[in-house]
């Protein structure tokens, strides 16, 4: 079972992702952080294999958190899930910073599971 941490300020998106992850059979959601700072703390306490993180959040945003996470934890794999995925500069910046993939909203459950399984 791969452990996944969901990071999104939107309760509805977090719930949707949690459901998709837990219904996959081989992935399990280990928690929900509401911003980048919480994500860094929960990465330490929950030790996930994968982090699914929104880019645009109040407080510490996703790209700032990604910068820290790739330094603090060389093993965790980060996937950005965002409505800004189609912005070329944002997509490129996320990959350059070390994100393994970028999923654009609105997303399909099958696409999300396929990407998480491939990591």
């Amino acid at each position: 079972m791969k452990k996944v941490l969901v990071v999104d300020d939107s309760l509805s998106v977090a719930r949707q992702l949690e459901k998709i992850i837990n219904e996959s059979g081989d992935l399990v959601c280990v928690g929900h952080a509401k911003n980048g700072a919480e994500a860094i703390k929960m990465n330490h306490s929950e030790d996930p294999d994968i982090i699914c993180m929104d880019m645009n959040m109040p407080g510490m945003d996703g790209l700032t958190a990604l910068r820290s996470l790739v330094v603090l934890d060389k093993t965790v794999k980060v996937v950005m899930v965002t409505s800004l995925g189609g912005v070329g500069d944002k997509f490129t910046e996320a990959l350059k910073l070390g994100a393994k993939s970028v999923i654009s909203k609105p997303f399909e459950a099958e696409n999300v599971v396929n990407i998480l399984r491939s990591l």
Binding site: S10, L11, S12, N56, T82, S83, G86, S104, K105, P106
Partner: peptide, 17 residues
């Protein structure tokens, strides 16, 4: 929250477009 998320999806796609 769901309405805000719907608006977030629209506005993110507008920025991309």
């Amino acid at each position: 929250d769901t309405v805000m998320e719907f608006v977030n999806i629209i506005c993110g796609n507008v920025v991309a477009k």
